[in-house]
Amino acid sequence: MSTKNWQNVLISPTDTIKHALKVIDQEALRVALVVEKEKLLGVVTDGDIRRGILAGFGLEEPASQVMNKTPLTADSNLNTQELQQLMYDRDILSLPLVDKNGKLVGLKTLNETLKVQKRENPVFIMAGGFGTRLRPLTDNCPKPMLKVGGKPMLETLINNFKNYGFYRFYISTHYLPEIIENYFGDGSSFGIEITYVHEEKPLGTGGALSLLPKSLPKEPLIMINGDILTNVDFGKVLEFHIEQSCDATMCVRDYEIKIPFGVIEGEGHEITDIVEKPTYRYFVNAGIYVISNNIIESLPNNEHLDMPTLFEQKQSLGCRTLKFPIHEYWLDVGRHDDFNKAQTDIHELGI
């Protein structure tokens, strides 16, 4: 998400230095963006104007005379942490955001990256599984409470959501719920609110939605499996869901399967083609969803339902169900190999 009033600092190359100075002072963003046909031509800061005056330029001359013609820009797909790091590394206070076509689409300030906008959207974390494949580690501990990098995976997941302003959490429990509840309590010591939703019997990810209280906020809900280690920008996922007017959004991962042999294609005994060591690519379910309130309210209470089936049902009824590809780090910690990999990867994620 870019600065809300970024369009107020757009000026044309023929606007005067005086006008640029007025824009910089009025908007308090410390910058004016020189734009022509939606393309960024340059950036003007207070320092640029001061240097221009020292060089003999008058205030009535075009701002293009003093602008920085080669400003640093950033891809609009970068998340807040990446933008913040870029500004720290280059010692700058703001970054124009451009899309893949070079069109100016926003502005991010360093000060904004240090502030987290509070979001009322609820977050529903599925933490009730038995973690059978991780036994004996899960014999006396729910899988999301296994420690990665010195703290429970569930705590790392919650902290990542907090980075994007989420504070209302609902946690679904079933196996050893007391361990989770004793650790997090009502969430106040972590700066969040937690409501626990206990499944008497496993209902599947879709079925658990029906147990959420009637007091649930009406905003779209983000749902995620509690055993996922990721630095996904949850704000971007939510914004996509809202902008596309979705009923349900499923995050997906690009998954490749490489066949180490020549694949023979044909009909009957006839060979029509030989494809040597092909790679097949698929989108796979990443276990992260955004669900609008109308979907939640439509669910039958206490009935088993998994998310893929829920998506199929709603799609057949004409609901808008879309996929959102994620390219960030993502690991489903389901097996011992995954758990060992997580112990190494956590130190490089910055979460």
Rank of each mutant, 00 (worst) to 15 (best):
D99P: 06
L21G: 09
T70L: 10
V31R: 04
G206P: 07
F124Q: 01
I271L: 07
T70Q: 09
F283G: 01
G204D: 02
G334Y: 14
K214A: 13
L203Y: 05
Y183G: 03
T109R: 07
K22I: 09
E200C: 11
D227V: 07
T14M: 09
K108H: 11
D306K: 04
L21Y: 13
I11A: 06
N8P: 06
P142R: 00
G334K: 14
K115S: 11
N160I: 13
M145F: 10
H347V: 14
E38T: 13
V9T: 02
R51W: 14
E267Q: 09
K18M: 05
V123G: 05
E328C: 13
Y255G: 07
N294F: 13
K214Q: 08
I53W: 12
V197A: 03
N302Y: 15
Q81E: 10
K22T: 08
F161C: 06
F311D: 01
K214Y: 12
G207A: 03
N111C: 12
D306L: 08
D99Q: 01
T205S: 13
I274G: 03
G102D: 04
V237G: 03
G131Y: 08
T344C: 11
L21T: 04
M87K: 08
V23R: 01
N182Y: 13
G106C: 04
I224M: 11
D233M: 04
E239T: 12
Y164K: 00
I326C: 03
K115H: 10
N111G: 14
A28W: 11
T3D: 10
V290C: 15
W6S: 00
T70E: 09
D91L: 12
T3F: 11
N294P: 02
T249N: 06
V232D: 06
